[in-house]
Design a protein around this nucleic acid. Structure first.
Lengths: 193, 193
DNA sequence: TTAATTTTGAAACGTTCATTTCATTAAAGA
DNA sequence: TCTTTAATGAAATGAACGTTTCAAAATTAA
């Protein structure tokens, strides 16, 4: 009976992600989203409920895109040292190809919205937990393989790496000198080796 | 002849800083600023030109407040190792006392506005240069005193520390566990010792 | 083909936005 | 005191905001 949703939801989310990423949440207007997605204003409200609702889906989309990308990158890693290097290489590549200096959507969102939107805060908390768990796993494996030191627990090193990644992403906004960024990464990774 | 400006400009800037810090640039309305400063709308425009003009002065105010604070902190530091520790202690203290999880105004501003407002981008670039120069100076002194290693140049370590500070400030938004944050700092500082 | 359901388009909703205007009030040097 | 300049208050500006409305068009199962 029903007419089914005719647009490609992922394509729409991709367009919306690009806008939110470039202009931030508060800097993005509904008109921006209408223009970018070529969707009708009503269709956006029918499908996403509100601007915030759409943004939540954009965050999820960005998150799972990042996971997919990481999954691919880590296919070629044969040990924990490779893995952690690949993770940082991925972020480095993101920075170097971010020609308009948008930074990381997740980091930007954290800085803009954690103290304003509880629902966003919750999302970012669970995102942080997931990332920390992933990093802890890698570090733990590396410590078992004796390629990482055991001066600190995998849990402690995971938080250090997480913090370093955020720092790298912030630094990359105003500095995209590959050599200098690689140097930061090397220094960061020395701590765990 | 003229009636002179009657309000205390620094007091006004302090109020305005609090608002921009809490809500971000795009999240702050002129009405918010009128309410916070108890200044008339016209007085704000007479004295600061525009919302962006006021924000620029707020950034300068925040920057010089930070410098003052750092100057005081570093009075008690007797060597380079003390100095760099005090710097990180200062940021840690900022995080632990930031009860409403606003983060760092400068970092937030970087993530929100670098790719939108050239005049803000320029300000942040020169702020970054100053901070890097300060850090490089500390590291250089420490290397001369042989309390820091010379595996990398003072310039390279300065960028690493700068990146680490930004990471710490971002991490502190969702995590204000003092022990865990101290642990990050210790790991960061191990790299240069 | 018909009935059900959704997408679409366009306009309008009331609110808020940053900024301007201007007459009034206040202060200081001449 | 008078003139000059600035601060003030309140209202208005027009544009943009997020959101809603609703009739028309489109699509599908029966």
């Amino acid at each position: 009976m029903p007419k089914t949703e005719s647009f490609n939801r992922n394509q729409v989310l991709q367009k919306a992600t690009a806008v939110f990423h470039k202009k931030g949440y508060n800097g993005t207007s509904m008109q921006d989203l209408v223009d970018a997605t070529s969707l009708n204003r009503s269709s956006i409200y029918n499908s996403f409920g509100s601007k915030l609702g759409m943004f939540m889906e954009v965050l999820s989309f960005y998150q799972s895109s990042g996971k997919d990308q990481m999954g691919k990158e880590l296919m070629h890693a044969h040990n924990s040292s490779d893995t952690i290097t690949s993770i940082f290489e991925m972020y480095l590549n993101d920075i170097l190809t971010d020609t308009d200096k948008k930074g990381c959507l997740m980091v930007n969102c954290k800085s803009e919205m954690v103290n304003q939107e509880p629902v966003i805060k919750s999302f970012l908390e669970q995102n942080q937990e997931q990332t920390l768990a992933m990093l802890e796993d890698v570090v733990h494996n590396g410590q078992m393989e004796k390629v990482f030191n055991q001066n600190q627990t995998a849990n402690e090193y995971a938080l250090y790496l997480y913090s370093s990644i955020q720092g790298l992403r912030m630094t990359g906004i105003l500095n995209n000198n590959e050599e200098e960024l690689r140097n930061i990464i090397n220094t960061v990774l020395k701590a765990i080796h």
